Amino acid sequence: MIQIADHRVHRRYSDRPVEPDLIRLICALALSAPSKSDLQQRDIVVVTDPALRRRIAAFLPHMPWVREAPAFLVFCANGARLPEIARMRGKPFANDHLDLFFNATADAAIALATAIRAAEAMGLGCCPISEIRNNARDVSDWLALPERVIPFAGFCLGWPADAGQISPRLPLATTVHEDRYGCTTLATDLAAYDRRRRAQQPYPEQRNTARWGEAVDYGWSEDKARQYAEPQRTEFGAFVRQRGFRLD
């Protein structure tokens, strides 16, 4: 329990390499995670080609840890394997709809979370990279992902160069519900959370001050409101459909 509560993202790593056998063990542990109906709709690509890593890192210049981490993996949602198994076994595949995509991405997310726990148990540090989906088409081409397999998240891995920092989370009063969903105190809960987060982990800078100006009390809620005031991944739905997933 203490180890889970002590989770922190690491973006700075020592020069010590992560041995291939250790990476393979982390992959094995990640893929031993629970999977919807034992369908196992998730794969991992271990990026070892320096040129390929540089290509991925080049479109994320604000994330130098993608280039600098000793190891980099890409977790993928795999909706291709089950239709292929159905074809091999001479059976129809009657579930080519939104649930295929939903289950594959959920499996990838669970595997990623399990990889984080496995890495931390070994003393390693890591950082998930969701922004690879900002360039999902190119990443898919570079990794030679087939139809119905899409990149879910990158994963930086290495031996931590510093202690990292724990990010305080929203209070349980906001996020845990009993019997029925309800949160009547969101405004006051957020205000208290913003104050606590500013005291423990203040933001080094404010987003898009040219548009929104400088906030006197800049906290998590203001940061996230500004972040999602700008369109993000507006082409992702079209990309997912283009890769063969049906979303109806």
Rank of each mutant, 00 (worst) to 15 (best):
W142N: 12
W142I: 11
A173L: 05
R137T: 15
P171T: 04
P151W: 00
W142H: 08
G123F: 04
Y181T: 08
I166M: 07
I129N: 08
R137D: 13
A118N: 01
E131A: 15
E131P: 03
I132S: 07
A121G: 13
I129E: 05
I150W: 02
P160C: 10
S167D: 07
I129Y: 02
C183Q: 13
L145V: 06
I166W: 04
R169G: 01
P128Y: 04
L143G: 05
V176G: 00
W159G: 03
P160E: 05
A153G: 10
L170E: 03
R117E: 04
F155W: 12
A121R: 06
E131Y: 06
A144P: 02
N135V: 13
P151C: 10
P128R: 08
I166N: 04
S130P: 13
W159Q: 01
V176L: 14
P160D: 05
L145R: 00
H177E: 06
A118D: 02
L157F: 10
M122V: 03
L145G: 01
D138E: 15
P168R: 12
A136M: 09
A153R: 08
V149G: 01
S140P: 03
A144M: 07
A163D: 14
S167I: 14
W142L: 11
H177L: 06
L157M: 10
G164L: 05
R133W: 07
I129A: 02
G182Q: 11
G154N: 08
P146C: 09
L145W: 00
G182L: 12
R137A: 15
G123Q: 04
R169W: 11
P160T: 12
E147C: 03
A121F: 02
P128N: 10
F152S: 09
I129R: 09
D179W: 13
A153S: 15
L143W: 00
I166D: 01
A173R: 13
P128H: 04
A163T: 09
Y181L: 07
G123W: 04
M122L: 15
A119P: 01
G154V: 08
L157Q: 05
W142E: 11
R148L: 04
C126T: 15
M122R: 11
S130D: 10
F152T: 09
A163P: 00
L170Y: 14
P168H: 12
R180C: 08
R169F: 08
L170C: 02
A121V: 07
P168M: 11
G154E: 07
Q165K: 14
A163H: 10
I150Y: 01
T175F: 06
P171K: 04
S130L: 11
F155N: 15
W159T: 10
P146S: 05
A136R: 08
I150F: 03
A119K: 00
A144G: 11
D179F: 14
A119G: 10
A161F: 06
V139Q: 01
E178W: 14
Q165R: 15
G164I: 09
M122C: 09
F155Y: 14
C126I: 07
R148P: 04
F155R: 15
A153N: 07
C156A: 15
A119H: 02
A163Q: 11
C127E: 07
R148K: 14
D162P: 06
L172K: 13
L172T: 10
C126D: 05
S130E: 13
Q165E: 14
N134W: 01
R169H: 12
C127A: 13
P171C: 02
C156F: 09
P160K: 04
